[in-house]
Amino acid sequence: MSTGQWMHPADGPAWFFDAGAESLDFAYTGDMGRGVPAWERLHSPHDLGAWLAEHVTTAPADEPGERDLADALILRAALTRLYIAAADGQPLAPDDIDTLNLFAATPDVPPALDGGRRQAGAGRIRAAQALSMLAREAVVNLAGRSDGRIRRCDADDCRMVYRDESRTDSRRWCSMQRCGNRAKVRAHRARSARGGGHF
């Protein structure tokens, strides 16, 4: 799995956001309750298939259907609520836990070593298998939420949720190119104002 995707806010340029977990990136295929319709990526089964192919598996995938899209939106809604609760230090809702566990119980994509002469099992990946991979990753992340790595961006005007995967456990911003740079500019201006200089 590879993490990160471009975000397209309604009021500014696109920027790259790495949520630190593929299941959390998947939650951000919607607006995570932020009221940003431009962030919606899953308008059709084809959109779902394209996102899963780019982010979850490089194996050939069956084209998802309407039922797969409906299932994906159910999983995404549960992931959204679970990750927000974890970031805010709130209890996880039992109904959302049940939803996540049901998706995680579906058989996922089996590992395979390249270079053999035979294809073991099905040659194409179903959307349900890819969604199961996302759910299983989320189970691991949310089970370990007490480590404090599921956080919100420090910027008061942002507060996006991410999983800190840094070695030093010191990530503070959704993105250094976005909120991190804004904070640096504000700090520089404040220092300049105290020193009587101009920015």
Rank of each mutant, 00 (worst) to 15 (best):
F103E: 01
I97T: 15
P60F: 02
R136V: 04
T106A: 10
A21K: 05
V139S: 08
A128R: 14
C153N: 03
R191A: 14
S132F: 01
H43T: 03
H8C: 10
R118W: 13
A78F: 01
A155H: 14
A38Y: 01
T168F: 07
G4V: 07
A104Q: 06
H198V: 15
G20V: 06
G144C: 12
A38T: 15
L75C: 06
I84R: 14
S23E: 00
D18I: 05
S132M: 05
W15C: 04
L48R: 03
G144V: 03
G148I: 06
R186F: 01
H198F: 05
Q90D: 15
A187T: 06
E54F: 00
P111T: 13
R191M: 04
L102G: 15
R189V: 13
A93S: 13
A85M: 04
L48I: 02
L92F: 13
G4K: 01
I125L: 11
M176I: 08
N141G: 01
G116Q: 12
A77S: 15
G65I: 08
G148Q: 12
Q129Y: 01
R163P: 01
A70M: 09
G196M: 04
A138T: 09
R152T: 12
R126E: 14
P91N: 12
A50R: 11
A27N: 06
D88P: 00
I84H: 08
S192G: 11
R76M: 01
D169K: 12
A128G: 13
M32H: 08
E66N: 10
P91W: 00
D31H: 10
R167C: 00
H46M: 07
Q90E: 15
Q177A: 15
A72M: 07
A135H: 02
P45F: 10
D164H: 05
A193F: 01
P107T: 08
Y162R: 11
L92C: 10
R167N: 06
G197L: 06
A120V: 14
A59L: 10
G33I: 08
G89K: 01
L100D: 07
I150G: 10
H188Y: 15
R41S: 12
A78I: 08
Q129W: 01
A155V: 06
G197H: 04
P64S: 02
A128T: 15
D154I: 05
T29L: 06
M133S: 12
H46W: 08
E63L: 11
R159I: 10
P111W: 14
D96I: 07
A27D: 05
M133F: 07
F16A: 02
I150F: 09
M7T: 04
S132N: 12
D154V: 05
A86C: 02
R172S: 13
M133Q: 13
L79V: 11
C158H: 11
P110A: 11
E66Q: 14
A85N: 08
A87I: 09
G123M: 04
A130R: 10
C174H: 00
